[in-house]
């Protein structure tokens, strides 16, 4: 289990990396390596050119810009885990990151790498979908932004052109009083989830849902934002009808494989969504009561 030969490039700047990506045939960029390196070792991927991004310091950061939080694509999952900004402003991301892999893989794994790999069960794409994150894609030709919903085109397929790189992700934090919850079912701690559900909820003064974001991971080929369910949740209070809202998860076009057939994934989706809504609501309500 050893990689096939490749030419290794180790650029120090983003500009150099984009130049390489533009000029080399069959090139791939290497971020944290927690998904690509196994594929190289197993020879499931055999690029002729490998462009290592780990020396480009400018791509690793978490900063607040106006009413947004911006995360550099090469930010390590560990740095998200320990970030005060993430903990205070993006509680959904903080809860999700603790369920990503293991300490040893979070030390290397990056946010951008996870989004570009786009495993249907991965946590970070689901979080980005929940936030309607805006992704900055750069190439030698220039830069463009895409929403997460358009970035995730299909099963492990993104909107990236061959010469493009994801460089940063922008998220707009919700009102500090919102409640968030990321719930997943995995066979073992740290495994890719069989399915996951992300919920963010804001309440009005009468504790009715005034804003909601509901997303499923691992159920369909890409993270699934449940806009209908969100609308159905608006105006609800306590646990009235939460279970019914969760039934929206049963209507999705679920993945089917020998280990986890689609009926099971849908079932799981309904259960996890109900739990995520319930938890997010309680958290929001607890804050409201405290306030």
């Amino acid at each position: 289990m050893k990689p096939a030969p490749f030419v290794l490039h180790r650029p120090r700047t983003l500009a150099d990396a984009l130049e390489l990506l533009d000029s080399r045939e069959n090139a791939r960029v290497l971020a944290g390596g927690q998904s690509l390196m196994p594929m190289l070792n197993m020879r499931l991927a055999s690029p002729d050119h490998l462009i290592d991004l780990n020396r480009i310091d400018e791509l690793g950061f978490i900063r607040e810009e106006g009413d947004e939080v911006v995360v550099g694509a090469m930010t390590r999952q560990r740095d998200v885990e320990y970030s005060d900004v993430v903990a205070s402003r993006l509680p959904l991301m903080r809860e999700a990151i603790l369920q990503v892999g293991h300490r040893q893989t979070r030390n290397r794994g990056t946010i951008g790498g996870s989004l570009c790999h786009l495993d249907p069960s991965a946590e970070m794409p689901t979080v980005m979908m929940a936030f309607d994150a805006v992704l900055l894609l750069q190439s030698r030709r220039g830069a463009r932004t895409v929403e997460m919903g358009s970035f995730a085109e299909g099963m492990m397929t993104t909107a990236l052109q061959p010469d493009e790189m994801l460089t940063q992700i922008r998220m707009r934090p919700w009102d500090p009083a919102h409640g968030a919850s990321f719930v997943e079912f995995a066979r073992r701690h740290g495994d890719f989830a069989v399915a996951s559900a992300a919920a963010m909820i804001e309440l009005d003064p009468s504790l009715r849902v005034s804003r909601a974001s509901l997303t499923l991971g691992g159920v369909a080929a890409t993270p699934l934002r449940l806009r209908d369910a969100e609308r159905a949740l608006i105006g609800r209070r306590g646990d009235e009808g939460f279970t019914k809202v969760a039934q929206y998860a049963d209507e999705c076009d679920a993945l089917d494989d020998p280990a986890f057939p689609s009926w099971y994934r849908r079932r799981l989706a309904v259960t996890l969504l109900a739990r995520a809504i319930d938890r997010a609501y309680r958290r929001a309500a607890a804050r409201a009561v405290k306030a």
Partner: peptide, 28 residues
């Protein structure tokens, strides 16, 4: 609870990584 060496109907082994064939870990 965990270890399932999966084959398809043509006897192709499917669970051929430690991500698919689950050994028990400390948290379980």
């Amino acid at each position: 609870l965990f270890e399932y060496m999966r084959y398809d109907d043509d006897a192709q082994p499917i669970s051929t990584t430690f991500a698919d064939y689950l050994l028990p870990t400390s948290t379980e």
